[in-house]
Design a protein around this nucleic acid. Structure first.
Length: 920
RNA sequence: GCUCGGGUGGUGGAAUAGGUAGACACGCAGGACUUAAAAUCCUGUGGGCAGAAAUGUCCGUACGGGUUCGAUUCCCGUCCCGAGCACCA
């Protein structure tokens, strides 16, 4: 009987849907396991064959865990707010909710065809008011809390207010913005506005002036991870720096915890490194320099990691945006400085990056005193100093910092070497090694000794202190867009006032157009009566990462109208055991989500301090493009092997009309009108196409649609082939060419259960040889799945099948366990065979077959290799026997004795896992 | 520039607490079945040399060294490819 995959897959998908096979409930009697995919943004283009890779892997793992007796939570939903839908709405006038709904429908159809074991009763959509109610709620909680550095967690702002009223803020150690010190008496005398202004500096969600990535084409600000090389990730529009008053999240308060807690996570080292790099902890010192502009004196703070090099600080540099620029610019220099700051301001991020080598700067006219040498040193301004890092000002040590070096050379400033024997004639000496010189009390110290010694001295002199700085900035949380979560904030007499939980969700209002208003306000400015209690409501919306930051919590209890997640549900499901998704979220979603979780953890709403215990990054699936070669100036196409004989143009051709790199000529002629009368020069009667690996995209004509693969080969083939393609975490091109092999395997597997057209399996007992095949497979599949080495498990299935064919084995005792094993990979065919074997219900909850070592010692000696009196045996199976048993077995083995000569063995050394050494 | 990965047949890739390199699959070649096609099955397939053949032999895991009885695997250096960060003081 034919393997009718279309019929089998259709009927079992219906079975799963009708029986809600994969619906889960909290069940304290069973261990939980939570497998999560990064939910997709439903784009209009639908899924291509690369998208499901991670979903297939997570589905295999989920199914495996179910077989192992776990209560598996495996949900799916949609990250439905986003720019493309809004851009599309601007162009067509269609409401983004409508296009999003349509796209979701298409995604669902495509996903359903692949046979995933999602619990769809838990589906969430970030654009659903019942969902974003809790996004807004979390924001309100952040608004109502501040970060106490003493207790190391978020605390209620009301408590802070009480402290202010009793003691002022001098004793408060908070992660906060710039605030002056005030006493209790002062606080109590402040106006409501003044108090609110101060509190805003403490809130975890706060409104503040900041330099943002402004994208004029999109009319909105973007997060750093939404900008790549000065262009917006979505759309590729230019992005510039601008100062704006925006909602922000005080992510930086959590920098230390975000960094430290990485250690306990089972994430790849490269991903952890990316986050460490992004958080960017650096240890050093903050130091005060006396500066004077001729009339007035100030204390200027700088940050350095090289306090040991103070003796070589021959000038200072301010960032052009620094507030110090105004204070320190003298009359003489005013014109030059203004010109320079204007120049620096109008430069876009992109231009700055392109010109990193160019040295620019201007002298302020002011001087500072080097606190160690007491020398008078000039204060300059240059764009190579960043306003957002440290204090926006540095002490420049040209001898030992390459940036300071180029600057000093360019403007002819003095360079003093501080390390014995270092050569600074061509470049600076940046390495932290060597013996100090020209450095007063530090002379003779190694650099490693000098750094702490210098900081100690600085602290002793009272001109500075130890300081840790982070690169991680607060997250900018406002977007001047329509299609996002509205802020539950209104402005009462100009004061940002939170709504209450009972007022949520604050739903998106209808607008006539999705463009900014003529007055430059965000699209919500078009909403009629966008007020709350008569007061105007915040007009910006939340960014894309808002809705995705806590969705894994919502899945635990998706229909709860009282809380984001109930205590019970959270205490049962706790955290995500396995998270699979792309590496592109390393510094965006995966940081914000961890921050969000930690915040809710501080407040006691969630019980785990980290959301994602284990994380796997699936590789990207690239496209494999095909080419035809047109002879220039003609409509003649020559096959790959002949193209060098002509002057040809390489033209992309739709991969769907090419098979095994052979062009379907009729389909090509029908593909585009201009090729209707194309001429061909063939090789051996065929047109061979060239190929290359490129990004999968419409313009390269290399997009392969999973629906098409399911139609032609079936979902089970698609699933197994995607895994067979190569290691999960590696990027690799999609190549439909190899899919026949996997499809053939499934057909052969199917036939094993049939005698001609009748389903027929033998009830005979299995032989040891057959059992060996089965148990080796069980062991291999189990190990492979746990190591996420799915490509080698597909191979293992193929090998086992070949061996069973050789033995002509169709015994139920062997085949039934194999059906269970394969059900994680190819669930449809497994269900069908499972039911034909006479089992009721779904194979999904069968027990994973148990591996039993049933083999004799003879099995161990397949490959003797001798060398220098040592004899080694490679074992095909790992040994559960202990060393003594093996030694006895080797000594008793006839073949070994014969091979080596009786009595010649002196010692048997067992190396774990693979090798036995026999010393003669 | 810094950080992290990775270089194995015509192709995707197996094999690393050092031990038969190239499993499995694609492709290709030959064959069987067929009026034909599809499907299916069988055989061969890293390279060189010798041989009618079985087979033998040498070379082969980016390149050059090293450790070792033995290196795709470990160490040092070089080259190339990919990813991330990029004036972070």
């Amino acid at each position: 009987m034919e393997y009718n995959f279309l019929e089998i897959e259709r009927s079992w998908q219906a079975f799963w849907a009708n029986n809600k096979t994969f619906k889960v409930e909290t069940d304290p009697s069973k261990p939980k396991y939570y497998v999560l995919d990064m939910f997709p943004y439903p784009s209009g283009a639908g899924l291509h064959v690369g998208h499901p890779l991670g979903y297939i892997a997570s589905d295999i793992y989920s199914r495996y865990k179910r077989l192992k007796g776990f209560n598996v939570l495996h949900p799916m939903g949609y990250d439905a707010f986003g720019l493309p839908a809004e851009q599309y709405a601007i162009q067509t006038g269609q409401h983004p909710a409508k296009t999003t709904e349509k796209n979701i429908e298409r995604y669902r159809e495509q996903l359903d065809r692949i046979g995933f074991s999602f619990d769809w009763t838990r589906e969430v959509r970030t654009c659903d008011p019942d969902y974003y109610k809790w996004t807004q709620w979390a924001f309100l909680e952040m608004f109502a809390h501040w970060y106490n550095k003493k207790s190391g967690k978020a605390e209620k702002i009301e408590e802070l207010v009480k402290v202010f009223a009793c003691e002022g803020n001098a004793g408060v150690e908070a992660a906060c913005g710039d605030t002056d010190i005030f006493t209790a008496a002062q606080w109590n005398s402040f106006s409501v506005e003044a108090r609110e202004k101060i509190l805003m500096e403490y809130r975890i969600a706060y409104l503040g002036e900041t330099s943002v990535n402004w994208c004029a084409a999109l009319g909105t600000v973007l997060a750093n991870d939404e900008v790549k090389e000065g262009l917006s990730v979505r759309g590729g529009h230019p992005v510039e720096q601008r100062k704006m008053r925006q909602w922000q999240l005080r992510v930086s308060a959590y920098a230390e915890r975000l960094l430290n807690d990485l250690d306990e996570l089972s994430w790849s080292d490269s991903l952890k490194d990316m986050q460490r790099n992004w958080i960017g902890r650096s240890q050093g010192a903050e130091m005060v320099f006396r500066v004077f502009n001729g009339s007035k004196e100030y204390n200027l703070d700088i940050f350095t990691t090289r306090a040991d090099t103070v003796f070589g600080a021959t000038f200072m540099v301010l960032a052009p945006e620094s507030e110090w620029v105004e204070k320190l610019t003298t009359e003489d220099q005013k014109g030059a400085v203004e010109e320079y700051t204007k120049y620096a301001k109008k430069k876009t991020e992109r231009e700055r990056m392109a010109e990193t080598k160019k040295v620019t700067g201007v002298f302020t006219g002011s001087y500072a005193i080097n606190p160690f040498t007491n020398e008078k040193i000039p204060v300059w301004i240059s764009e190579y100093v960043l306003a957002g890092y440290g204090t926006g000002a540095i002490m420049a040590v040209p001898a030992h910092d390459s940036r300071d070096y180029t600057f000093a050379k360019h403007f002819d400033l003095p360079i003093i070497p501080l390390i014995e024997g270092c050569d600074i004639s061509q470049e600076s000496f940046d390495a932290k090694e060597g013996i100090m010189c020209n450095s007063g009390f530090l002379n003779g110290f190694t650099v490693k000794q000098a750094i702490p010694a210098a900081i100690e001295e600085v602290e002793k002199l009272g001109i500075g202190r130890r300081k840790v700085n982070f690169r991680l900035r607060d997250a900018i949380f406002s977007r001047q867009r329509y299609w996002g979560e509205p802020f539950p904030i209104y402005y009462k007499d100009g004061i940002a006032t939170p709504m209450e939980l009972k007022d949520l969700p604050l739903e998106l209002p209808e607008v006539d157009k999705f463009l900014p208003t003529e007055g430059g306000e965000p699209p919500l400015g078009r909403a009629e009566n966008w007020t709350f209690g008569g007061y105007p409501v915040e007009k910006s919306t939340m960014p894309g990462f808002a809705g995705s930051s806590a969705y894994y919590l919502r899945y635990m209890d998706p229909r709860n109208s009282e809380a984001l997640v109930s205590k019970d549900a959270n205490n049962y499901w706790r955290d995500v055991d396995l998270y699979i998704g792309g590496t592109e979220h390393a510094t965006g979603h995966l940081i914000y989500s961890r921050f969000w979780n930690k915040f809710l953890f501080d407040l006691g709403f969630v019980c785990e301090k980290e959301p994602f215990k284990k994380l796997i990054n699936q590789g990207m699936i690239q496209g494999r493009s095909n080419f035809v070669y047109r002879v220039k100036g003609t409509n003649k196409f020559v096959s790959l092997g002949l193209k060098d004989k002509y002057d040809t143009t390489e033209i992309h051709v739709d991969v769907n009309i090419v098979s095994n790199d052979r062009l379907n000529i009729d389909a090509f002629r029908a593909w585009m009108p201009e090729y209707a009368d194309a001429q061909f020069e063939l090789e051996n009667g065929e047109y061979i196409c060239g190929w290359a690996v490129e990004k999968m995209s419409k313009s390269m004509f290399n997009v392969v649609n999973p629906d098409m693969i399911c139609e032609k080969y079936g979902a089970d083939t698609l699933r197994m082939y995607e895994m067979f393609l190569g290691p999960l975490e590696q990027s690799k091109p999609w190549d439909t060419n190899g899919i026949d092999g996997v499809h053939r395997f499934l057909k052969r597997f199917w036939r094993l259960f049939f005698n001609k057209d009748t389903f027929e399996v033998s009830n005979e007992q299995a032989t040891p040889a057959e059992l060996k095949i089965l148990h080796r497979l069980i062991k291999k599949i189990q190990e492979d799945i746990e190591n996420f080495s799915f490509n080698t498990s597909v191979s293992a299935f193929m090998i086992a099948l070949n061996e069973l064919y050789e033995l002509n084995c169709n015994k139920k005792a062997i085949l039934e366990p194999m059906v269970i094993l394969i059900s994680a990979f190819a669930p449809h065919i497994a269900e069908e065979l499972w039911s034909r074997l006479g089992n009721p219900g779904s194979v999904s909850f069968a027990a994973f077959p148990e591996y039993v070592e049933k083999f004799t010692i003879e099995d161990l000696f397949e490959y003797p290799v001798s060398f220098n009196g040592k004899l080694r045996f490679k074992l095909t199976l790992s040994i559960l026997l202990n060393a003594k048993e093996i030694e006895a077995a080797v000594l008793a083995d006839e073949n070994t004795q014969k091979y080596l000569g009786a009595g010649s063995i002196k010692k048997v050394i067992v190396v774990p896992k693979k090798i036995i050494n026999i010393v003669c």
